[in-house]
């Protein structure tokens, strides 16, 4: 390809005219990009391929011999009850956590937007504070709050005459307890929605009111489309994060625990927790690499589907 610049024919490479300036600046570009280039090769792309390679071996750092085992790891995953169980738990959590957190965050953000002014700032801060709590402290805190016999949450339920379940020991109630915990840190999403709501032009509501549109009509036809960018963003990000839930649950139920809450059993086994166990607790790194690639594939597929679907629904200003 060529393009005429200043009356001369100049080659175009990668969308940029290949002029003397471009050539001279290129070494600067490489200098500026160097942290990312090195990181990408050494810490991202290289390790990804390395993981892929390991997934076809039975690599175990505490065993001297490593063999190439073909697709054996992948075949084993299909029959591994822990894979099925942890996938089930993870999807169960994601399917409940993502819509619940989005719904509650939207409700709170709408309330903040309605109240306005200084008090909105105060409440926003209050809602956000749990998010600065380190995940390991969140896990520790809810280990105490969700205690079946004497925790605060069952205390409150008892006040209303409800006999609260054993959140930490009863397999039926372990995941609902984890979801309650996850909703405590919904403030991050509230801040995003509140910022988006403030950007909706008030004239739109004014015009709608003059046309006699009800509050619900305004919400459905103005608010939701106008903040659809933020809704979609949190939908994708929260989904990706939910599929990788680890720290809080690991803190509560796993590790070198000495008789904390052993009854939870398989109900709290999430996918990344099982992956971590295989890789760093029993050192079956070949198998764990296969598990990692499955996770990558699942996240990739879900994200691509979400982006495809969003093209229909998401409104971006200036498009």
């Amino acid at each position: 390809m060529t393009a005429g610049i200043q009356g001369r024919e100049v080659r175009v490479i990668g969308g940029v005219p290949w002029t003397r300036n471009t050539r001279q600046d290129l070494k600067w570009v490489l200098l500026f990009l160097s942290p990312w280039i090195i990181g990408f090769i050494v810490l991202t792309a290289g390790p990804m391929l390395w993981t892929l390679y390991l997934s076809f071996t039975n690599y175990n750092p505490i065993r001297p011999v490593t063999n190439f085992v073909g697709i054996e790891n992948y075949a084993r995953m299909l029959k591994d009850p822990h894979v099925l169980n942890s996938l089930y738990n993870t999807i169960f959590y994601t399917v409940l956590h993502v819509p619940l957190s989005m719904g509650i965050a939207l409700l709170l953000a709408l309330m903040l937007n309605r109240i306005g002014g200084r008090s909105a700032g105060f409440f926003r801060t209050a809602f956000y504070i749990p998010n600065v709590t380190p995940a390991v402290a969140v896990g520790t805190l809810f280990l105490l709050l969700l205690n079946g016999n004497s925790g605060v949450i069952n205390g409150v339920l008892g006040f209303f005459g409800i006999d609260g379940p054993s959140w930490l020991n009863d397999p039926t109630w372990v995941k609902p307890g984890i979801i309650i915990m996850s909703l405590w840190t919904v403030g991050n999403t509230v801040v995003i929605y509140f910022a988006a709501l403030k950007n909706v032009p008030l004239e739109m509501y004014e015009a709608a009111r003059i046309d006699g549109a009800s509050a619900w009509d305004q919400f459905r036809n103005i608010t939701v489309p106008m903040i659809s960018g933020a809704l979609f963003f949190t939908f994708v990000i929260n989904t990706i994060a939910s599929l990788q839930l680890f720290t809080e649950v690991y803190t509560m139920f796993f590790g070198a625990q000495q008789g904390q809450s052993s009854g939870a059993g398989d109900a709290a086994e999430f996918y990344v927790i099982y992956l971590f166990h295989e890789a760093f607790e029993v050192f079956r790194m070949g198998y764990a690499s296969a598990l990692a690639w499955l996770l990558f594939a699942v996240i990739l597929v879900i994200t691509v589907v979400q982006i495809r679907v969003s093209r229909r629904f998401v409104y971006y200003e200036g498009e």
């Binding site: 390790p47 993981t51 750092p61 990788q244 890789a279 790194m285 764990a288 690639w293 990558f296």
Partner: peptide, 21 residues
Amino acid sequence: GLVLAGMMLPGAVTMIPNYLI
């Protein structure tokens, strides 16, 4: 685009080699 793609990469995919390095 490659930079952005790195944003959605789950940490688990690079965790084991990073440990080995």
